[in-house]
Design a protein around this nucleic acid. Sequence first.
DNA 1: GACGATGAGTACGTATGCGTACGAACGCTC
DNA 2: GAGCGTTCGTACGCATACGTACTCATCGTC
Lengths: 255, 255
Amino acid sequence: MANDKSKFVFRNRLLCALSPSDAALLTPHLRAVTLKLRQELEQPGRPIRRVYFIERGIASVVSAGIGKDRVETGLIGPEGMTGLMVLLGNHQSPNATFIQAEGTALAIDADALRVALEKSESLRRLLLKYAQVFVIQTAQTAVANARLTLEGRLARWLLMTQDRLGESKVPMTHEFLSVMLGVRRAGVTEALHALEGKRAIRARRGEIDILDRKIIQKRAGTLYGLPEAEYERLFGTPSPSSRTPCAGRARTAAT
Amino acid sequence: MANDKSKFVFRNRLLCALSPSDAALLTPHLRAVTLKLRQELEQPGRPIRRVYFIERGIASVVSAGIGKDRVETGLIGPEGMTGLMVLLGNHQSPNATFIQAEGTALAIDADALRVALEKSESLRRLLLKYAQVFVIQTAQTAVANARLTLEGRLARWLLMTQDRLGESKVPMTHEFLSVMLGVRRAGVTEALHALEGKRAIRARRGEIDILDRKIIQKRAGTLYGLPEAEYERLFGTPSPSSRTPCAGRARTAAT
DNA sequence: GACGATGAGTACGTATGCGTACGAACGCTC
DNA sequence: GAGCGTTCGTACGCATACGTACTCATCGTC
């Protein structure tokens, strides 16, 4: 699980955006890890041990009331990181975070991150910028849940997922989607059929092909694109100069 | 609007929780202001000029997609402050914030707050703790919008509002509630009748009396109480010693 | 190549909430 | 105390989504 830590080529956009000195601060603590499907990165009320900068794959933040009934409130891919609460100074979260699409990440001990955050103001600034985007994403989810039809919420979810996967095939079952969206499994099936009827997607067993994002975006209405736009505004087009070595970045959101 | 700034007695719980030195840092910049109904404290995409520590009344954060269709995603009372995005290092927000129940606040220029935040790590820590609670509140709203019936969402909203007002009378019209919850006005009327039938509330013209919180809590299910509990966990019972002078604090959430 | 497990299609009755609309009640102003 | 604007009660038809449940398809496994 550990790795030669001398030189990473980052796919994670946050790591790519680090200044050289901040990169030097973090890199010694980063460990390449694989993210297995349904692996739990954070559990409600438990101490957060590690924070993950996603390189490939998707982590999902799900919230619940005091009991069960989890619903997804945030999506994290190679544009972001887990451990929002650590950034804000907490050691735990009432939410759970788990892997929704397997991949890899660079992980850092929460304590090491805390130390680095105290040392470097620019690091704090950078990561808190991501916190902003994440907060906005959560707020948008709240609005989407209130105002969008099931098909619309599904459309929004597909777009956000595809952005983070960077592929046209989304490997998810209806059952899983229904849990994420907090709706009935059969409802997902029907909504997917509706999208399929419009030639927007093609559904296979355990997999959804995205055929036409434009059509899907129409379904999601105005509730797709704002966090993505805010991300671009805050992080800008990554200037290759004076930045940490960086792999070609994952596709960004279309507006 | 200005004020003798030498001695404040704070009702705002965040200000109350300030260490003496942090209080000394902020106090010179605080101005007592009145919050008028529907006054806009932040507008989407506009620079955030001032940040408000609510002393009495309620501010409401509403989010929208790229277009209209605003829905409330956060509530702020004397336990909190506006300007979350300033805390996170931004100068603007895609959300709007406006006064939902009139009152008063202590306001500080966003720039002055930024300077103070840079100077004092303990101040940063404290205010970011509130940011945590606010983020959790937003996530809970997302879950509530996905899973709760209209009556449940209304119940949750009534409880949160009453916590912040500290009174048993909530002065709101059905029309206004419908906008906040993102539902139909007539739907609010019906849901209120349902609650009234259970003797949980009593609805007058433009005003709702809270009669029995227990019954209302049953309606809100598990989706009321988590942010409130987290607030108490993080801020604890305010120890009167070594703290800034503080008025008797507003009622806290019952669990 | 049969079996079990998982995933997907479908269906029926019901509940929740929407859009719209109209009228009644209340409260303020002149 | 007449007039008017706001607020609230109510109603009807319809869309959306639910809960439940049964069947069929697909896949991996022995």
